[in-house]
Amino acid sequence: MRIFNFFRPAQPPKVESSAHHAKERLQIVMAHERASRDGPDFLPLLQQELLAVIAKYVDVDQNKVEVKLDRSNEISTLEVNIELPSRRPEPRRQRAALQGAASTP
């Protein structure tokens, strides 16, 4: 009831308030952007080189490569999923997952 709220003393903003949430999100995403602002956009290149190495050993379908990124406070993960072709006549899929983890600066 609003009328009771009115008599309650003013409270400091709660830690889980939406503004707090906003600040936290901005800090994470902007730290990453600042770090990479002047550097080259390395992800496309990384993907190409990675594929080139793997292609030396197995036949890779360029259209079956998935790259996922998740950034958080402590740790960022980059996940590259490359689907490898089956050597058997019947089409059964194998998946190789390459996972790399790196601490954020």
């Binding site: 994470i28 995403v29 956009d41 992800l43 496309p44 993907q47 360029q62 259209n63 490569v65 790259v67 996922k68 990124l69 998740d70 950034r71 958080s72 980059l78």
Partner: peptide, 16 residues
């Protein structure tokens, strides 16, 4: 936090 590639990468053929 999940942005890897973007619209421009796709336009430039750098990503699918």
């Amino acid at each position: 936090r999940r942005v890897v590639f973007d619209f421009i990468n796709v336009i430039n053929g750098e990503a699918k």
